[in-house]
Nucleic acid binder design. Structure first.
Length: 324
DNA sequence: AAGTTTATCAACCGCGTAACA
DNA sequence: ATGTTACGCGGTTGATAAACT
């Protein structure tokens, strides 16, 4: 029993939009608006398109003030910082880039930025000291998502997202201290492993994964969970706003991103250098929030960096791989 | 010049969830 | 409280262009 289709596939046209279709949709929406019902819209216009397809076409292409291509260094920096902070929440990231769509940002990341960041490691890999640790040997030079970790004789694959974070983390660490790769994790990007009880244990990988993922923000993990949540938030805030922290480690992350993206001696490039401010307009009732600036002890802004099952799962990936 | 591989990006798909009856 | 509908999102696919052999 699959999900009921949102439209009649037999009568709905798929594939690229013609200029005529674009004009019909654009003219109608400009004159009448969407009417709050995308499903009904194509019928009103006489378009043989699915409502979802119309919505996507409008949002990603026909909407006014849409920008395509030519991402600026400032935009690169924002995307990278936010990706490291909050992961693949493209709509939130795109919201910080006027004229950009989530689809655009996502494509840009997947096809260019990610390669620029992760690819550099490959280039540099032959010139640096490789650690004895599993961190540097198991995943090194492997494309995201392809890395397999031999943990206790069992081959496991990391989620691509966790893998990317780890690889980015490793790159940044290496830049900061090439001899400190054995530290396994970057406190800027990942929560401290020394936080209270050791609920996250590699010995209980599968069951723990389920437990954490299912409970999400529930109180099952109590203080530990809150503490962890705070640390994740803090890490996100640090990564997004290198200039906002007292920690000297934090200060360099923006410059490091610049260096990874544009090469040596390019720290001044982009001129952004400033904090990435996320106004959490995705359902956040409190309006604009300088989500990077709140203290760890304060209540976290809703919808900005929540400890979701996804983040829990990524954390579980990470902890089990590094036997924390 | 032709064939093959790789990169790019528009569009699709299905899931989670908010809104509503 | 429950079921249904539509929206929004992120992951994935496929067509096309560009680069390479």
């Amino acid at each position: 029993m699959g999900r009921a289709p949102c439209c009649d596939k037999a009568t709905v046209k798929k594939g690229p939009w013609s200029p005529e279709e674009d004009a019909m949709l654009k003219n109608y929406i400009e004159q009448h608006g969407t009417g709050g019902n995308w499903i009904a819209l194509p019928h009103k216009i006489g378009l043989k398109r699915c409502g979802k397809s119309c919505r996507l076409r409008w949002l990603n292409y026909l909407r006014p003030n849409i920008k395509h291509g030519d991402f600026t260094p400032e935009e690169d920096s924002i995307i990278c910082s936010l990706y490291i902070s909050i992961g693949s929440r493209w709509s939130i990231i795109a919201a910080q880039l006027p004229g950009r769509t989530d689809n655009d940002v996502k494509n840009y990341w997947n096809t260019k930025l990610k390669k620029r960041l992760l690819g550099r490691r490959k280039d540099r890999g032959h010139h640096h000291h490789r650690s004895q640790s599993a961190t540097a040997t198991a995943e090194d030079d492997l494309p995201a998502g392809d890395a397999m970790n031999d943990s206790g004789g069992e081959q496991r694959s990391l989620s691509a997202s966790a893998m990317e974070r780890i690889q980015l983390c490793m790159q940044l660490q290496e830049l900061q201290n090439p001899l400190a790769m054995h530290q396994h994790h970057n406190p800027l990007l990942w929560p401290n492993k020394d936080h209270g009880n050791n609920s996250f244990n590699s010995n209980s990988s599968s069951s723990m994964n389920v437990t954490v993922a299912e409970h999400g923000l529930s109180s099952s993990l109590g203080d530990h969970h809150q503490q962890l949540n705070g640390q994740l938030e803090s890490a996100a805030a640090m990564a997004a706003s290198p200039s906002s922290g007292e920690n000297s480690n934090v200060v360099t992350i923006e410059a490091e991103l610049q260096e990874l993206l544009y090469g040596e001696g390019s720290q001044g490039r982009g001129g952004g250098g400033g904090a990435v401010i996320v106004d959490c307009d995705v359902g956040a009732p409190q309006g604009d929030v300088d989500w990077w600036s709140y203290d760890q002890g304060k209540q976290s802004p809703v919808n900005c960096w929540d400890f979701t099952p996804e983040t829990s799962s990524m954390f579980q990936d990470y902890t089990s791989v590094y036997d924390i």
